[in-house]
C-alpha cells in the first residue's frame, strides 16, 4: 500500500475525497485521512489534486 500526502501542500479542499470511488478518503479537521483497507490505488485523487499533494503507487 502506498498512498502518501504532503500535508504542507494540502489546502483541505476535499477534491480528492470527491473523486475516490471507494470512499477511502475523508476530510477532517486535521486534513485528509485514508482508510488503507479501502484504497484500491486507482490514482484518481492524485490526478485531481490541484496542488499535487498526493502520491499513489511508486511513480516517484
Amino acid at each position: 500500500m502506498s498512498w502518501e500526502i504532503n500535508r504542507d501542500r494540502c489546502l483541505r479542499c476535499g477534491g480528492c475525497v470527491a473523486v475516490c470511488p471507494t470512499q477511502a478518503l475523508e476530510l477532517t479537521e486535521n486534513g485528509v485521512i485514508v482508510d488503507e483497507e479501502k484504497c484500491i490505488e486507482c490514482g484518481n485523487c492524485e490526478k485531481v489534486c490541484p496542488v499535487g499533494a498526493i502520491t499513489v503507487g511508486d511513480d516517484e
Binding site: 477534491g15 475525497v17 470527491a18 473523486v19 475516490c20 470511488p21 470512499q23 484518481n44
Partner: peptide, 20 residues
Amino acid sequence: VESLIAKKTEVKDQSDLEVV
C-alpha cells in the same frame, strides 16, 4: 463536493475524472 453522506446513499458517484 466531498459529501460522503450523498455517497453513502449511492445517489452520488463522482469517480469519472472526465467530468470533474
